[in-house]
Design a protein around this nucleic acid. Sequence first.
DNA 1: CGATAGTTTGATATCCTTCAAAACCTGTGG
DNA 2: CCACAGGTTTTGAAGGATATCAAACTATCG
Lengths: 244, 244
Amino acid sequence: MTQDTHFWRPLLKRLANFSEFTEEEAETIAGLSATAQRLCVGTVLIEEGDRPEDVIYLVEGWAARYKILPDGRRQIVAILIPGDLCDVQVFTLKEMDHSIALLSDAKVARIPKRTMLQTMEDTPRIARAMWWSTLVDEAVLREWLVNMGQRNAFERLAHLFCELWLRLKQVGLTSGHGFHLPLSQEGLADTMGLTPVHINRTLQRMREERLITLRSGELVIEDIERLQKIADFNPNYLHLLQRK
Amino acid sequence: MTQDTHFWRPLLKRLANFSEFTEEEAETIAGLSATAQRLCVGTVLIEEGDRPEDVIYLVEGWAARYKILPDGRRQIVAILIPGDLCDVQVFTLKEMDHSIALLSDAKVARIPKRTMLQTMEDTPRIARAMWWSTLVDEAVLREWLVNMGQRNAFERLAHLFCELWLRLKQVGLTSGHGFHLPLSQEGLADTMGLTPVHINRTLQRMREERLITLRSGELVIEDIERLQKIADFNPNYLHLLQRK
DNA sequence: CGATAGTTTGATATCCTTCAAAACCTGTGG
DNA sequence: CCACAGGTTTTGAAGGATATCAAACTATCG
């Protein structure tokens, strides 16, 4: 356990796309939980069928929402990065219809049900910001559906990289045109509804065409404009503040 | 315009999966709007980029959320049936990131922004029920993603039919094992991320295997158990009340 | 009865999967 | 410093699912 308050920075950055907060509101958010826990890759945070008692906040590291089919295939339905909350509203539905596990070693905080509900009740602006983030998650889901339904492997992967880059940039986790991507090719495959083999070949083509480099988990986007064009990437669904 | 109050029946039936309402609450819901409007197939209710001023309630008929790609391809990301609200929370995001259009002639009511916000504020149980329905919509989106990512055309279509059947049954719009399906093969294709031609062949196989009949927009599921098994259909994601 | 949208059919091309093996990393223990 | 284990990436060959294109057929409606 560590004592550390500025681990709320990424969440505040994200929510700032909805509205600026007063000093007091920021402190309320920072007061949601004072401690964080280190957990290692693969740890299952929440499982299908659970009725969680806490909202989980991802401070560092990546996680994924996913569903497993009876024959063992896995579909990742969302990627969570630092600053993301797992289900603000987790108490509204009776039980989880999917699982969440860590994609990397991570630092995680837990917000107790009572604290969460109380805060939502007492500070309407924070409540609205939290709901806003739920709605953005839903918008991302819609875009992923378009991605899966209409785009081929190359465009699809390009789109994912564009999205991750923007989302990470938002919380200050990019360096230049690159970021750390703690996902094996198998993980990418489970995200894109493709085969690891095909992901491999698609990545090779991206490298050949000088769009990206990717080595030992470090992705660099060499030509973001071209990548966005290929992916037909329109960031409107992320509902970020327009900063000209 | 028609005067008709019991068109709130389907919404009340749906929300009943979250909680029962008192007589008074039911009346509050029925008071959200007193009039409905008839509109014909293809009418665009809301377009990408809009900032809607009303919440739209679908009384009769079907609609679809969709996105259009620059080259004209269309991906349907949700199917709306009677009792569905288009975006309870439409005022929280600045602008629409997708469009909604009618899949059939329909009857539609509009709930003004102010009425909606006021009701959410005054009657917390109704507010929570509305949020619940948003969360279920999100769960459906996740399941659709699994459907697109992991299942082949046959399983995918089977899954869609299972879901629609349950959702329609919930609002009392099935007759025996059948229901009205106002979607052309092209519409099904846009929903499933497949070609109309391939949808056609898949439907033929379903008929051959005595799973369904489908003629002039009337779908009958001949063997629901087998269809569910094929689709690996688990209704948990619809978060319906367990009725044994 | 012709016009129009929706469905069906056939032939061929493409994308992606499958399976199996080899090569490559990275960390660990001797 | 080397050897080896386990996971990840890469390669090749072949098969299957779905797309594409174009045309014929069917249904419906004014």
